[in-house]
Design a protein around this nucleic acid. Structure first.
Length: 844
RNA sequence: GCGGGCGUGGUGGAAUUGGUAGACGCGCGGGAUUCAAAAUCCCGUUCCGAGAGGAGUGCGGGUUCGAUUCCCGCCGCCCGCACCA
C-alpha cells in the first residue's frame, strides 16, 4: 500500500483553525453577483447578540451551512451572509443592571459571537456583515419608513400600552407577570398613547393570496398565517337601543340570529364609556377591565365577566329586548367592538350566559327532529336551522346568505368581510431602537424629517439609572428646527419595533450601497431567498412582517419582488435533560449545568460532592434551568466537525434535538473512523467491485436528494452505511472511488476533516471548491428485489426475485414457499393480492 | 381559551404514494486485541416464548386483503397569540 502521509490521528485542535484561515485567504465564500453561475441565496435567521452563541444557533447555522456548501459544490454562486439583529431590550436591561452602554455591550457581544461562529467553520460571506444598530443600516430604514409614510402606509392612532405606575415606564408583555411589573411588582395599568402604525391590513388580501404560491413553505406555517390573517365573511348589523342610540355588531354566524340572547360591548366601546360616565358601578367595572394583562391569551383565559348596563337592544327580526352588557372578553380592535351573544352556538357566550342566567336557545340542530334537544355545551358545528322562523330547515350556509340579503333589503345590516389581522403598532417607548424619523411642530403638526438629515442617530450620552425613555430626558437630542416652518420643534422620541429591523435585512445582505438601502438590480439577482431557515417560533410575526415589508416596498417602487423567501424551513429546538436538587428545608430547587454533573447510563452525580442529583425531563435549553451546553467548550473538546455532525445526525431537523454527551462522543468517534478510512486510499489498488460501485452511486444520489430536502439525518445515516460497506470491502479502484466520494459528500458537513484529507490525497485546490461527485444512472437500479409473502396480512416469508417479475410468477413462487404452505394449512385460498416488486398477500 | 404541530424499542430515530415496522446512530451485553487501560475490531440487542408462534408504532374505535401512514373520539407534550427576539 502506498503511504498517503496520513497521521495516525486527525487533530481538530490544529486542523480547524488552519483550514478556516485557508478559506478566508482564498475568499472562498465571498459571493460574486456578477458570476454567470446560477445563484443561490441561503439565509438563516440572524441572531440577537445576547453575548454567547447558543447551541440552537449552531444547529440552525449548520443546516444552512451544509446547504450553502453543497450548492457551491453543485456549481452555484452562493450568497450565505450573516449579521446581527442588534436592537432590543436585553441591551437596555444590561445598561440598567450593569451600568454599561447598550451600544458598547452589543458590540462586545457581536465580537464574541462572531469569533465563536468562525470557530465552527461556517462558510459565510463576512464582507456583507452588518448590525441593525449601525446608523448606516437604520438610517436607510428611516428613509424607507418615510417613503412608506408618503405612500400612505404609516399613520398614528391611540393605542394601549402596559404602564408601570411605579417605574413610570411602558412594559413589554413579557415584563408583565400576573398583571404586575417585573421589577416594581406594581399592578400594571392599561394606558392610551398616541402611537405609530403600519397599514399591514392594506395588504391583508395580498398576504393571504400570496400564501398559495409559497409551495415550499411548511403547510403548518401557511395555515398559521392564514388563520392569523383571519379573513371572515359575516354580517354587520345595527341594533336600536332603548336609550335612543344604536349599536353595530359584527357576527360571522348571522344564521344564529334567532338564538341571540344578549349584546356585549368592549370596555372601551363608546357605549361602555357613556354608561360609565354617570354610573359608578359601571365605572368600576370598566376600571377592572383595564387592570390586568393586555395579551389575547390572558383575556381569553380570564373568567368571563360582564356588567349589565340596563340598556336593552331591539332584535331586528323578532323585536325582542336583549340586555346590553359590558364584557371583558370583547375586543375593541376586532370587528365593531360589540358582539351579539348566541350562547347555544358559541362557547364564550355559553359560559357568559350560564354565569348571568341568560336564556340559551337552540337554533341549529343535527336535523329538524332535534329542535328541542337540550344544549349542554355550545354547538358550533354544522346542521340545519331550527326555532328560526323563515330559516327553519335551511343549512347554516343557506341561512347565512338569507339573513344577509334580508338585512340588506330591510336596511338594518350588510354583508361584510372582516379581518382578524390588525395594523402593526411599531412605536416603542425605548432608547435602543431605530429613532422614528418624524418631528412634532406646534404649527405644522407631525412632519417627516428631511432625507438629508438621515440617519437620525441615537445620542451616545444617555443614562439608564432613572427609569423611562432616555431619549425623552436627553437635554438636547429632541430639540430641532421644524423642517417646514423653521420654528422650534421636537423629535419623535419613540423608536421602531425591532421587528422592522428584521423585515428587510435580507435585502441589505443582497447589496449595500452607501446612498440607498439597497440596489434593486442586485436585489433582483439574488432574491427571493432560495432557502430560509429559522425557528418555528417565528412562524407568524417575523415572517408575516417580512412578507409585508417586501410587498410594501414593491408597492412603493423600491423593488420588484413580492415574496422574500421562496422556500422556508423551520427547525426544532436543542433540548437537554435538567439536573436539580431540592433543598430539604424549604424545597427550593437549585439547578446544575451538565458540565457540573457526571452522567452514566443510570445515574447522575454532582462532580463536586459525588452524590446524586435528580434527573429531570428533556426540555428546551434555558439559562434558568441551567441545562445549557456551551458551543466553545464542546468544540474545544471534540472539534468543530464532531459538533456539526451531531447537529445533523439522528433527529430530523424540524424536530427537537436532545443534546447528549454520549451522542457527541459517538460523533467524534465517527470523525476519526472516517480519517482512518480516508487513510486507506490505495493508489495501487486494481479492479472493480460491482456491489460497492452500486452502493456508492446510490448513496451519492440519495445524499444529494436528502440535503436538498434538508433531511440531514437521513443523509447522515446513508453515509454511515456506505462507510461500513467501504470498510468491509477489499482494496480496489471501486473502493478508492467510494472513499473519495465519502470525502466529498462529508465535506459540507465536516469541512475541516474533508479539507485535511483532501490535501493529503493531493486533491485539486480546496475541498470546499471541489465539485460534487457524479452519479452513473446505470448503477442506481438493483436487478433483484426482496418481496414479502403475507398470509392474512401477516408476514410469513420473504423471497429474493428478479426485478419486474410478472405477477403470476410471483404468485406461483409465493404459494411454493414451505412457510406459506405451513401457515395456509390446507385452507381455501380466496384471493391473492400481488404488488409487483413488493409483496404477495394470500387471503383465505 | 383560541390557532398550529408532535407522539414508533432502554434511547435519538428510519420506513416510496396504504405494502417486510425498528434501517442507521447511541446505550447495553458478550467476545477479540492488550501486562493493563484507552482506542479499535467482531457478534448480539422490540417484547413474551425453550421453540413453533404470538403481541407490538400514546390510548379507544373505524375503513381496508393489508394502517406508523387514512377517518372519528380521547390523553400527553411543544410552539404562537400581536411590546421577548
Amino acid at each position: 500500500m502506498t503511504d498517503t502521509g496520513f497521521d495516525a490521528r486527525f487533530e481538530p485542535g490544529q486542523a480547524d483553525a488552519r483550514w478556516q484561515k485557508a478559506w478566508d485567504e482564498a475568499k472562498c465564500f465571498v459571493a460574486d453577483s456578477n458570476s454567470p453561475k446560477p445563484k443561490s441565496y441561503v439565509l438563516e435567521m440572524f441572531p440577537y447578540p445576547s453575548g454567547r452563541i447558543h447551541i440552537g444557533h449552531v444547529r440552525n447555522y449548520t443546516m444552512g451551512d451544509v446547504l450553502a456548501r453543497y450548492k457551491k459544490m453543485r456549481g452555484h454562486e452562493v450568497l450565505h451572509p450573516m449579521g446581527w439583529d442588534a436592537f432590543g431590550m436585553p441591551a437596555e436591561n444590561a445598561a440598567m443592571e450593569k451600568g454599561v452602554h447598550p451600544g458598547g455591550w452589543t458590540r462586545d457581544n457581536i465580537a464574541n459571537m462572531k469569533a465563536q461562529l468562525k470557530r465552527i467553520g461556517f462558510a459565510l460571506d463576512w464582507t456583507r456583515e452588518f448590525a441593525t444598530c449601525d446608523p448606516e443600516y437604520y438610517g436607510h430604514e428611516q428613509a424607507l419608513f418615510i417613503d412608506m409614510f408618503k405612500a400612505g402606509l404609516v399613520y398614528r392612532k391611540e393605542s394601549e400600552v402596559n404602564w408601570d405606575p411605579v417605574d413610570q415606564t411602558v412594559l413589554a408583555n413579557e415584563q408583565v407577570i400576573d398583571g404586575k411589573g417585573w421589577r416594581s411588582g406594581a399592578q400594571i395599568e392599561k394606558r392610551k398613547l398616541s402611537q405609530w402604525f403600519l397599514k399591514i391590513t392594506d395588504f391583508a388580501e395580498e398576504l393571504l393570496e400570496g400564501l398559495g404560491e409559497l409551495e415550499n413553505w411548511p403547510d403548518k406555517v401557511r395555515l398559521m398565517q392564514e388563520n392569523w390573517i383571519g379573513k371572515s365573511q359575516g354580517l354587520q348589523l345595527k341594533f336600536a337601543l332603548s336609550d335612543g342610540q344604536s349599536v353595530e355588531v359584527y357576527s360571522t354566524r348571522p344564521d344564529t340570529i334567532f338564538g341571540a340572547s344578549f349584546i356585549a360591548v368592549a370596555a372601551d366601546h363608546p357605549i361602555a364609556q357613556g354608561v360609565a360616565a354617570d354610573n359608578s358601578a359601571a365605572q368600576a367595572f370598566v376600571e377592572k377591565c383595564k387592570a390586568g394583562g393586555t395579551t389575547a391569551a390572558e383575556l381569553e383565559t380570564a373568567e368571563k365577566l360582564g356588567f349589565d348596563t340596563g340598556i336593552t337592544a331591539v332584535h331586528p327580526i323578532t323585536g325582542a329586548d336583549l340586555p346590553v352588557y359590558i364584557a371583558n372578553f370583547v375586543l375593541m380592535d376586532y370587528g365593531t367592538g360589540a358582539v351579539m351573544g348566541v350562547p347555544g352556538h358559541d362557547q364564550r357566550d355559553f359560559e357568559f350566559s350560564t354565569k348571568y342566567g341568560l336564556p340559551i336557545l337552540r337554533v341549529v340542530a343535527a336535523d329538524k327532529t332535534a329542535a328541542d334537544a337540550p344544549i349542554t355545551e355550545a354547538e358550533a358545528g354544522d346542521g340545519v336551522l331550527v326555532n328560526s322562523a323563515f330559516l327553519n330547515g335551511k343549512t347554516v350556509n343557506e341561512a347565512k346568505a338569507l339573513i344577509v340579503s334580508r338585512a340588506e333589503d330591510e336596511n338594518w345590516g350588510e354583508g361584510k368581510t372582516v379581518w382578524r389581522l390588525r395594523d402593526w403598532g411599531v412605536s416603542r417607548q425605548r432608547y435602543w431602537g431605530t429613532p422614528i424619523p418624524f418631528i412634532h411642530c406646534d404649527t405644522c403638526g407631525v412632519v417627516p424629517a428631511p432625507k438629508e438629515s438621515l440617519p437620525i442617530e441615537l445620542p451616545e450620552d444617555v443614562d439608564f439609572q432613572t427609569p423611562g425613555n432616555p431619549l425623552v430626558r436627553h437635554p438636547t437630542w429632541k430639540h430641532v428646527e421644524c423642517p417646514s416652518c423653521g420654528g422650534q420643534a421636537e423629535r419623535e422620541t419613540d423608536t421602531l419595533d425591532t421587528f422592522t429591523n428584521s423585515s428587510w435585512y435580507f435585502l441589505r445582505f443582497a447589496s449595500q450601497p452607501e446612498d440607498r438601502p439597497f440596489d434593486p438590480e442586485e436585489v433582483a439577482k439574488w432574491l427571493p431567498v432560495e432557502q430560509y431557515i429559522g425557528g418555528i417560533e417565528h412562524a407568524i410575526l417575523h415572517l408575516l412582517y417580512a412578507r409585508f415589508w417586501t410587498r410594501a416596498l414593491k408597492h412603493t417602487g423600491h423593488i420588484d419582488v413580492a415574496e422574500p423567501f421562496g422556500s422556508l424551513f423551520t427547525q426544532g429546538m436543542v433540548t437537554h435533560e435538567t439536573y436539580s436538587r431540592s433543598a430539604p428545608e424549604d424545597g427550593r430547587i437549585s439547578y446544575f449545568t451538565p458540565s457540573e454533573v457526571e452522567r452514566s447510563a443510570d445515574s447522575a452525580t454532582l462532580k463536586s460532592d459525588g452524590s446524586a442529583v435528580d434527573v429531570g425531563r428533556v426540555i428546551k435549553m434555558s439559562k434558568s434551568k441551567k441545562n445549557v451546553v456551551d458551543p466553545d467548550e464542546i468544540i474545544a473538546s471534540y472539534g468543530a466537525d464532531a459538533v456539526r455532525w451531531f447537529m445533523l445526525s439522528d433527529s430530523p431537523p424540524e424536530r427537537d434535538l436532545p443534546w447528549s454527551e454520549a451522542g457527541i462522543e459517538g460523533c467524534s468517534r465517527f470523525v476519526h473512523r472516517l480519517w482512518r478510512l480516508f487513510g486507506q486510499f490505495d493508489a495501487d489498488a486494481q479492479g472493480r467491485d460491482k456491489a460497492l460501485d452500486r452502493k456508492t452511486h446510490q448513496t451519492i444520489a440519495a445524499v444529494a436528494e436528502d440535503i436538498e430536502a434538508l433531511s440531514f439525518n437521513k443523509a447522515v445515516a446513508r453515509l454511515y452505511e456506505l462507510t461500513g460497506a467501504t470498510e468491509k470491502a477489499t482494496p480496489s479502484e471501486s473502493r478508492n472511488e467510494a472513499i473519495r466520494s465519502i470525502l466529498l459528500m462529508s465535506s459540507p458537513m465536516m469541512p475541516h476533516l474533508a479539507e485535511e484529507a483532501w490535501s493529503k490525497l493531493d486533491g485539486d485546490g480546496l475541498a470546499a471548491m471541489a465539485a460534487w461527485p457524479d452519479v452513473d444512472p446505470a448503477l442506481l437500479v438493483d436487478d433483484e428485489v426482496t418481496i414479502a409473502i403475507q398470509h392474512k396480512g401477516k408476514l410469513r416469508d420473504t423471497l429474493t426475485v428478479a426485478k419486474g417479475l410478472p405477477k403470476d410468477q410471483m404468485e406461483e413462487l409465493a404459494l411454493a414457499s414451505e412457510k406459506v404452505q405451513r401457515s395456509l394449512d390446507g385452507a381455501e385460498v380466496r384471493k391473492i393480492i400481488v404488488v409487483p416488486d413488493r409483496l404477495v398477500n394470500i387471503v383465505t
